[in-house]
Lab assay of single mutants.
Amino acid sequence: TFELKGKVGKVVKIAEDHYLVESEGDKWIAYSDEKLSLGDRVMVVDVDGLKLKVKRIP
């Protein structure tokens, strides 16, 4: 299986209740415990079905 946990991506869209993150050339629906901005670099900390939980990284 394709393992996304630990992968790095970038926030490419902000929606009302989720983010769109591009990682490894694909776009994924993501959510975070912190507020993210367009262009933020993020790391995948968990995968919930087809949704990614991400956190901001420097």
Rank of each mutant, 00 (worst) to 15 (best):
K53W: 12
V54F: 02
I57K: 04
V21M: 13
Y19D: 01
V47K: 03
S32I: 03
R56C: 07
L38E: 12
G25Y: 04
V54L: 05
A15R: 12
D17G: 08
D48C: 14
K53A: 06
I14G: 03
D26T: 11
K27I: 11
Y31W: 13
D46L: 03
D48T: 08
G25F: 04
P58Y: 09
K7T: 04
T1R: 15
K53N: 12
W28G: 02
K13M: 13
D17S: 10
K7C: 12
L38A: 11
K55G: 07
G9N: 01
L38I: 09
S32L: 02
K35N: 11
K5Y: 15
R41H: 12
K51A: 13
V45Q: 06
E16V: 09
G49C: 07
D48W: 07
E16N: 10
Y19I: 07
E34W: 04
A15F: 09
L4H: 05
K51N: 10
S23D: 04
K53E: 14
H18I: 12
D17W: 07
L52K: 01
V21W: 14
S32E: 00
I29P: 07
K13A: 10
G25N: 06
E34Y: 05
D17A: 12
D26V: 11
V12R: 04
V21I: 08
H18N: 10
G25R: 03
D46T: 03
E16D: 12
G6P: 00
K27H: 08
D26C: 14
G49K: 09
K13C: 10
V45I: 06
L52E: 02
D48H: 07
G9H: 02
S37P: 02
V8R: 03
K5G: 15
L36D: 00
V21R: 00
K5L: 15
I57P: 05
H18R: 12
V42T: 04
V12D: 06
L4E: 15
E34K: 04
G39L: 13
D46V: 04
L50W: 13
T1G: 15
G25H: 05
R41D: 14
K27S: 13
S23L: 15
K55N: 14
V47M: 09
K53Y: 12
Y19M: 09
W28I: 08
L4V: 09
E3P: 15
I14R: 08
L50M: 09
L4R: 02
A15D: 10
S32Y: 01
L20K: 05
G6W: 02
E22L: 11
F2Q: 15
I14T: 07
D26R: 09
K5H: 14
E16M: 12
E3C: 03
S37N: 06
W28H: 13
V54R: 00
L38W: 13
G25I: 03
T1A: 15
G49Q: 08
Y19C: 11
K35I: 11
G9W: 02
M43R: 01
H18S: 12
F2M: 15
V45K: 03
W28E: 01
R56P: 14
H18T: 13
D40W: 06
D33C: 11
Y31G: 08
D17Y: 11
L36F: 05
M43H: 06
V45H: 06
Y19H: 02
V12Q: 06
V44P: 02
G39C: 08
K27P: 04
Y19E: 01
D46F: 03
V42P: 00
D46S: 04
Y31S: 09
Y31I: 12
V11T: 03
K10Y: 07
S37D: 10
